[in-house]
């Protein structure tokens, strides 16, 4: 029992937190150098997922990729440390709830803990993402054509490209300013028609479909160039975790700021 208590104490110790932070900062500095000079080694993570990348690129150049594995280990340690430390403090705060004269003051005290737990949800999101996400690459669609991804059929019904005709935006004359692709999606009995654009992905049957590229980029006359789009199609169950974490972290930030503002008053 004493051993367990000791482990719990050290797992949540603030100096352990500091040590992990320092180690991560140095590790990320190394990561900066590696990403700057060997970006080609890390670029495939987005497409392959972490596990496949670790078994190929990661294994092939351990000297250049070790920082990322160290970072993952540090994040895991930070996750454990954060959980233990925050849980300890939440328990103490709850036990001392009678000391607060105002309920709002008591609730605002949870701000930092909301942030810490939200961070854990985000870490969970990244873990789920790197373990279970899938990417479908090189998906090119021409108007009227259909492709199949997993059990989803995607048809590009129509592609509209607006070209900039003004002269305010420097360097953009006659270049595409807006792209709208109308997709028809089918999976079993489920049907959907949706407009795909840059930064406006289409969500359907567990997939997120993002516009990666398109042609023609300029509206100058000449050859009747062929229209097409390329897609990034992702199946990422982690995304809802890390965006939930981000929303709650932001809430915690505002609770914390509000508490500090009240303290100053």
């Amino acid at each position: 029992m004493i051993l367990l208590q000791n482990i719990w104490y050290w797992a949540g110790n603030i100096y352990v937190t500091m040590a992990i932070f320092c180690f991560m900062i140095l590790d990320l500095l190394n990561g900066y150098v590696m990403l700057k000079y060997h970006a080609h080694l890390f670029d495939p993570i987005n497409d392959m997922g972490f596990i496949k990348w670790a078994l190929t690129f990661g294994k092939e150049s351990p000297g250049r990729t070790a920082w990322l594995f160290i970072l993952v280990v540090c994040l895991a340690l930070l996750g454990v440390n954060t959980f233990v430390c925050t849980t300890d403090r939440v328990i103490k705060l709850w036990q001392n709830r009678h000391r607060f004269k105002r309920i709002s003051r008591f609730i605002l005290r949870f701000g930092p803990h909301v942030m810490h737990y939200s961070m854990l949800i985000m870490f969970l999101g990244y873990l789920v993402s790197y373990l279970f996400s899938g990417t479908y690459l090189g998906k090119v669609l021409l108007p009227g054509k259909t492709i199949q991804v997993s059990d989803v059929w995607i048809t590009l019904e129509n592609l509209t490209i607006d070209y900039y005709t003004g002269n305010r935006l420097v360097g953009m004359e006659k270049r595409a300013i807006d792209v709208k692709a109308r997709l028809y999606l089918k999976s079993g009995n489920k049907l959907k028609t949706a407009i795909l654009s840059f930064n406006k992905p289409v969500l359907f049957s567990g997939l997120s479909i993002h516009l990666k590229n398109f042609a023609p980029k300029t509206g100058s006359s000449g050859m009747n160039r062929r229209k097409y789009i390329t897609l990034i199609i992702k199946q990422d169950p982690g995304v809802r975790f890390y965006f939930t974490g981000m929303i709650f972290f932001t809430l915690g930030l505002f609770m914390y700021s509000l508490e500090k503002t009240e303290e100053i008053r």
Binding site: L35, N46, F198, K234
Partner: peptide, 13 residues
Amino acid sequence: WLGWGSPVIWDDP
């Protein structure tokens, strides 16, 4: 995520 489908772009130092 909206633009490229991933919250981290791994080729940017």
